[in-house]
Design a protein around this nucleic acid. Sequence first.
DNA 1: ATGCCGGGCGAAGCCCGA
Length: 260
Amino acid sequence: MKIATWNINGIKARIETLLTWLQQAAPDVVCLQEIKSLDENFPGERIEQLGYNVSLNGQKGFNGVAILSKHPLEDVRKGLPGDPSDTQARYLEATVSNGGGAIRVASIYLPNGNPVESEKYGYKLDWMDRLNQHARDLLKLEEPLVLAGDYNVIPSDLDVHDPAGWAEDALFRPETRAKFHAFANLGLTDALRACHQDANQYTFWDYQAGAWQKNNGIRIDHLMLSPQGADRLRACEIDRFTRAWESPSDHVPVWIEIAA
DNA sequence: ATGCCGGGCGAAGCCCGA
């Protein structure tokens, strides 16, 4: 089973690109971030025509996450627990059943947090604490689990073209990385790093300053697996070719192959 | 280069992203 994550930066602007990639890559499950759409305005019918079920946690104008699946989506959870006052659409979780077994899948759009001096950084850190707590609860189930999405976290120096230049950024500063490592240390496997250890495994290139042409990228889109999920991991790849397509998202898809 | 692009909203210019 092929499970992907992709921050598409607006479904309205990316629907044709998404449909092209879905037909070409043929993933079984896709976690989307930044759909920037209300549920009722999401072009679900065109995606359903390709054989996908669609589950949404949308929001007007920005944020918004989705899960697409060729298999039924069950027990859908909208929103990350722990703060009823949080109205931003950044989390969606569902169980994918493919006959043989079930996998719990989450689509995550973790807050950016810049500028660090603003309340946005505190919101990011609080959100990471809530994600950590929820992951603890999910891991207690001891089942295959894939927490996939745009984490807005650069895990290590290997994952950024210019570590020194990013040192104080909300995506890379020590406090951010410490929380991400605490999360991973609950027992979650970074699928890309389980399969590839070399540098330059980027998933995002800014639209500005020729970042793509210069390969000034960062790795911030991750698939994090429970032990039961990691046991079944067979491959993890980054579809960086989509960044060269016309009118691309600034993120590219990342996917894993899991033994059925 | 804490906004150079690009998207959304909504119909000009501002908010947002990383």
